[in-house]
Design a binder for these strands. Structure first.
Lengths: 366, 366
DNA sequence: CTGTTAGCGCATTCAC
DNA sequence: GTGAATGCGCTAACAG
């Protein structure tokens, strides 16, 4: 049996209450007593039973998730994952609320962050926008000792505790590497479709992509980036125009959302030489396009993993315990048509229990 | 507050003990009483607090992990991950013992399974060998109601509860798809290096690979498979001979272990046209070869994820609760030199705690 | 067959 | 400043 608070009380010659006070760094203990207890803790190798502690406290973790809304497949999928987590809150002792803010709007995000702060939750997860005001708002949360993790898009220069997302520079480099190799001997320039250069993840992907194209595949020029605002309709129009203007385009890298529009433009392309297409985020639409051969590869970040990871990390930060680093690293998944995972939704292992524990369907749309 | 056993006792008009009996499906309850309680449970939407239950039971989960030994990088990494889990056992309430058996030896594996059974653990994880005797041994465990998960290599036809590993057919298909595209216009046959056709994962990868090569890249013949027994020395010799015999080889797919030998053979290759190499499992050696351009892509299964997943699933099966399906799906990671993760070992998030919670270094060798 | 009671490891009132 | 007592939700002896 591992040591308990009783053991350390006995070892230090004090009562449970005193042990508890030093354990939870509360006031009201003489320095000598405190030290005596701390030494006992060290000596017998005590490690707190978080489950028992949470039971005694009837602890629940109030978390706030701040997500952009809008007709964006990936973000809708992310939100679905947060809702799935809400469905598990009874089991996971969480109380998660979702706050939706307009996309690409730093002011609204700051307001949401400050509002969240007023509710003093046990932690905040936020899809960040790169802006000094947002940095300041995040740091206000931190100065209230509220843990903050950035989700999907990071916030450089802030005091956020953790970033639950992929290495977007590596993602861009990987896309270029695949593009260059897939193009093989073929020649022709490469077009890039982005959402907005205002968000850090898109910029980083572009940087990584351009770097490798220049380093290793200089034969293919990279055309000026097309900003589609993650809007399918706009993306369709702009890509269509680009293909018409430069019929010699050999490849397209779509590093943002709005792939529905890209795919539509590809379908309408008046034949000609095939275009190698690499896109981000596995959705209903990109999955179908992959199967049809319209898209050659999809780089993906697992939104479910990101959400679960954010929750685990926020809990750990709130409790001041360590996390398993490797478990919280979000991978860049590479999907070809050959390694597509089965559709989500029906993959819960057979339960064998009383009480409902159903996982909600997780419909994605774009 | 969510309902507790007290609430259901009150609702059903019985005592706690009776509630507990039906909750844990123990005998000694009249059918009518049982039904009354079950209805109350249903009605008030009770869901058991597993943490509290485990606290009351002082429950620990004794698990047995059966792993092959030998000079095989990947398996050593897997074992390191199990040891890392052992390091977390205080926190995770597990008591994990590792049983090492000779590789590719069904008889020894059966003996180990029966021995494990005699200890009646709360669950067994095993790297399976495809053999009727092994199936029977696994089914003996299951008939004792001991949960079993297969790890890395599955056991078709058995009653194992779960497989913690990748879809190896998809892995083989993906390898072929990458190979075919990376070869671009180049011509020449493709060689395949395997460990042994006795293990299911290797056979499946080969099947997937050959299928796609035939479907989509018929211009490249697939040479007869080379069996290197996952032994670096043997692999080096055989690959060297193959390259000498067929200098026109355009690609090599290494679907097993022993990549150290493959890499050595590649280094000694008397120049000539470049060979496209795709290998499995990210280790110190394949990582270096990827960086040096000797290997073009590495398909990987995350051993840490597999071990953590196996433990979660075994716990869930032991408790009769559901798991989060998506969390237990082991991905086929594709690594190019551009998306290599940072070296493992130093990536634990900054802790902030009392009591030691160190993650051990996880040295891999091949 | 069913109910009462005393913990599991910890946190939190209250007295002292 | 410090300690003793009570309860978190659940299980496991015991009685009845």
């Amino acid at each position: 049996m591992r040591p308990t608070v009783h053991d350390i009380a006995a070892a230090a010659g004090v009562s449970l209450a005193t042990v508890d006070r030093v354990l939870n760094q509360r006031a009201g203990v003489r320095t000598v007593t405190r030290e005596k207890v701390e030494q006992a803790i060290e000596r017998i190798g005590y490690v707190r039973d978080v489950a028992a502690a949470n039971l005694a406290k009837s602890r629940i973790y109030p978390f706030v998730f701040i997500l952009p809304f809008g007709d964006n497949s990936f973000m809708r999928g992310l939100e679905a994952q947060v809702r799935a987590a809400i469905g598990r809150s009874a089991v996971e002792r969480t109380d998660i609320s979702i706050v939706s803010v307009p996309a690409f709007n730093a002011e609204a995000l700051v307001a949401a962050l400050d509002e969240a702060r007023a509710r003093s939750p046990a932690g905040v997860a936020v899809v960040a926008i790169d802006s000094p005001d947002v940095v300041a708002a995040v740091d206000r949360l931190r100065s209230d000792r509220i843990p903050v993790v950035t989700l999907v898009s990071d916030l450089a220069g802030s005091k956020r505790d953790h970033f639950a997302g992929v290495d977007n520079i590596a993602a861009g480099r990987t896309a270029a590497s695949l593009m260059g190799r897939f193009l093989g001997g073929r020649s022709g320039p490469v077009a890039v479709l982005a959402g907005s250069m205002l968000v850090r993840d898109h910029r980083e992907r572009l940087d990584g992509f351009c770097a490798v194209m220049k380093e290793s595949f200089a034969g293919h020029a990279v055309l000026p980036v097309i900003e589609g605002q993650d809007d399918p309709a706009l993306a369709e129009r702009l890509v269509g125009e680009a293909l018409a203007a430069s019929p010699e385009i050999a490849g397209i890298y779509s590093l943002g959302a709005g792939n529905r529009g890209l795919i539509a433009a590809l379908k309408h392309k008046s034949s000609g030489s095939p275009v190698c297409v690499i896109a981000h985020e596995l959705t209903q639409h990109t999955r179908a396009a992959l199967n049809d051969g319209l898209i050659d590869a999809v780089l993906n970040q697992d939104a479910g993993h990101e959400v679960r990871s954010a929750i685990r990390v926020l809990k750990a930060k709130a409790d001041g315990v360590a996390v398993i680093g490797a478990q919280e690293r979000i991978r860049i998944d590479i999907f070809l048509k050959d390694n597509l995972p089965f559709e989500e939704g029906s993959e819960t292992d057979a339960p064998f229990e009383r009480g409902s524990n159903q996982e909600p369907e997780q419909g994605r749309q774009d």
